[in-house]
């Protein structure tokens, strides 16, 4: 069997993958020089090796490579989400897909809390005030300077998987009430005071002081935080997104933030514009409404998963485990359900 790595792997990384594979497996990694980032790859650097690859593993795949990889049977995606994959294509061609969910769930949970506390304590605006030697008089009652206490508040966690439950555990130490929402409420949830199914989501939004989105982006969740959902939220509530930007309908969120219909937004994930005008040559930007510049918004850029020491090696190890299992004909850990999309 032949495994093709779709990034500019170091010698040590190639050896790491090889050691995890059954004997007789060939592991190929491009040796050319990366453009911007060695975890990304150019078409020309893998095109020659793609046609006879049985397994592909990487953080990205250039357009056209799947078509060349006629022999592909297994694909290992070194991300926690699988939303940017063409699930229909994999299904049609019978290609099995695995991801590395869980590799960075603690890091993401910590980042969620950093964002949540950052917006609740208005840290960014206060840091900015400090740089400008501006000192808001106490008792001025300007909401953008007033911190909110977490203790005794309700946190609604939409998506109570590995990230969501790690957030729930930490929220309990802040003496918060934890309301989880998950597709399978019958599975319960560690540290949660209540668990609801998707049908109960709007009620959870209505009672929450903080809402965390830690749910995969699927056909069902794309844009599911729209006008109706935002309208159910409290005027004093904060929305924290560590799932995907496209879970939230941007225009409705922007309107709610500018009209102070919710208290703030903190996000590590931004919108991905497909079906947008112009269809190509679009300027890459966090948000087309300029939402990231509002005073009640704080944001980071996909930092949640990156803080883990050795996250690259950890992801490679998780991925190699799945690839090796496939090659041995065993059930693959972390298989993506192509119908569900995660």
């Amino acid at each position: 069997m032949k495994v093709l790595l779709t990034w500019y792997a170091t010698d040590a990384e190639v050896a790491r993958v090889r050691n995890a594979m059954p004997p007789g497996t060939t592991v190929f990694a491009p040796a050319t020089r990366p453009n911007l980032c060695r975890l990304e790859i150019e078409y020309d650097d893998v095109a020659k090796e793609a046609p006879d690859a049985d397994v592909m593993m990487g953080w990205m795949v250039p357009d056209g490579i799947y078509e060349l990889a006629k022999n592909l049977k297994c694909f290992v995606w070194l991300h926690g989400g699988a939303d940017d994959l063409d699930k229909e294509m994999f299904k049609r061609r019978g290609i099995k897909v695995a991801n590395i969910r869980g590799a960075n769930s603690v890091s993401t949970a910590e980042h969620t809390f950093a964002l949540l506390l950052g917006i609740a304590k208005r840290l960014v605006i206060k840091h900015k005030a400090l740089l400008e030697s501006h000192w808001e008089p106490y008792g001025s009652n300007r909401p953008e300077y007033e911190a909110v206490i977490l203790e005794g508040k309700t946190i609604g966690i939409v998506g109570y998987g590995m990230v969501g439950s790690a957030v729930g555990k930490r929220a309990k130490a802040f003496d918060m009430r934890v309301a989880g929402v998950r597709k399978h409420p019958e599975r319960g949830g560690v540290a949660a005071d209540s668990i609801s199914g998707p049908a109960g989501m709007l009620d959870v939004l209505a009672e929450s002081d903080f809402v965390v989105l830690s749910v995969p982006l699927t056909k069902e969740t794309f844009g599911f935080i729209g006008e109706a959902a935002i309208k159910r939220m409290k005027k004093t509530a904060f929305l924290v997104n560590v799932g995907r930007g496209n879970l939230v309908q941007e225009r409705h969120l922007h309107a709610a933030l500018t009209e102070n219909r919710i208290a703030g937004y903190a996000s590590d994930v931004w919108w991905h514009y497909v079906h947008s005008f112009p269809p190509t040559y679009g300027l890459l930007q966090p948000s087309r409404t300029g939402l990231q510049k509002l005073p009640n918004v704080i944001g980071t850029m996909g930092q949640a998963g990156v803080a883990v020491p050795g996250i690259i090696s950890k992801s490679i190890d998780f991925g190699s485990e799945s690839a090796a299992a496939f090659i041995r004909g065993e059930p693959m850990p972390r298989t993506v359900d192509l119908d569900l999309g995660y």
Binding site: A120, F174, T300, M301
Partner: peptide
């Protein structure tokens, strides 16, 4: 805890990057 997490996760610098749409290669 807010300050500890803000420094640990570099919240202010990363926020500034998002505001000006600056995005460093991950590696």
């Amino acid at each position: 805890m807010a300050l500890m997490l803000a420094v640990a996760k570099r919240i202010v610098v990363n926020h500034q990057s998002v505001q000006i749409a600056h995005w460093e290669p991950q590696d």
